[in-house]
């Protein structure tokens, strides 16, 4: 049998290996930043979750307390954005998309609490996080439409929970507002042509949140506790 063979130029595999290694070191660099982001997001959400046991009048204390962490979170996203933009966006977007959704949810929830049921648009969230949104004309880090919509669904889940807890706190007005808010968002999702993907699966859950909120409204109305409008 022949021994000396020249079928494979070793450079081929050396080049492939260096490409694989390069991608791996990029992933590692991003992972470090994401860990930091994750910690800050969790901390901010832990603070914001006090909203469930804080009367509406004092909700400012909760959002105020979360502000510092949210600022840190925004700084970390700036770092992520800078590192991530070195590579084609969608090549690695799977690494951080979950974390960007969580960060986006944090902003949406804080905004909703602070501004009495206001929904930040994707552009407003982008301004707060200091990242572009829905980029189409250039390849760089940004917040995608999908990430924003998934974060919005998380907000709905959280508000359904808040609706019941408001009643416990003796607040009968906010459940009415939450009920309307969720219905309005649901109407929005209703006009989207969703494929069989994660967005579809998660948005299917909104109707159960509507039911939960309507149940609260029903209970209050039945007992004449609902505020007269």
């Amino acid at each position: 049998m022949a021994t000396a063979s020249q079928m494979v130029d070793p450079v081929i595999f050396a080049n492939l290996q260096s490409k694989i290694d390069e991608e791996d070191s990029f992933r590692n660099a991003v992972r470090d930043i994401i860990q930091e982001l994750d910690k800050q997001t969790k901390f901010a959400l832990a603070i914001l979750s006090r909203a469930h046991s804080t009367p509406a009048a004092r909700i400012g204390e909760v959002t105020g307390a979360a502000e510092i962490t949210i600022k840190e979170l925004i700084n970390t996203i700036a770092k992520l954005s800078e590192t991530a933009s070195q590579q084609p966006y969608y090549k690695f977007n799977y690494i951080w998309t979950r974390h960007m959704q969580d960060a986006c949810f944090t902003i949406l929830f804080a905004g909703w609490l602070q501004h009495n049921g206001k929904l930040f648009t994707i552009e407003e969230v982008g301004d707060i996080l200091k990242v572009p949104v829905n980029l189409k004309d250039r390849d760089a880090f940004h917040l995608t439409v999908e990430e924003y919509l998934l974060a919005l669904i998380t907000l709905i889940d959280e508000l359904a929970r808040l609706s019941r807890n408001c009643v416990t706190l003796g607040d009968y007005k906010r459940p009415m507002e939450i009920n309307q808010f969720i219905k309005d968002v649901h109407a929005g999702f209703g006009i989207l042509n969703l494929k069989n993907d994660i967005l579809r699966k998660r948005s299917d859950g909104i109707k159960y949140r509507i039911k939960e909120c309507e149940d609260v409204v029903y209970d209050l109305s039945l007992r004449n506790l609902a505020p007269q409008t």
Binding site: N134, E146, V185, L199
Partner: peptide, 20 residues
């Protein structure tokens, strides 16, 4: 009244349609 969020969702719809 119509959902106040419909206009922004219309933008999302066309974005998602293009993507799909």
């Amino acid at each position: 009244t119509m959902s106040p969020f419909l206009p922004i969702f219309e933008t999302f719809r066309s974005e998602l349609d293009e993507h799909h």
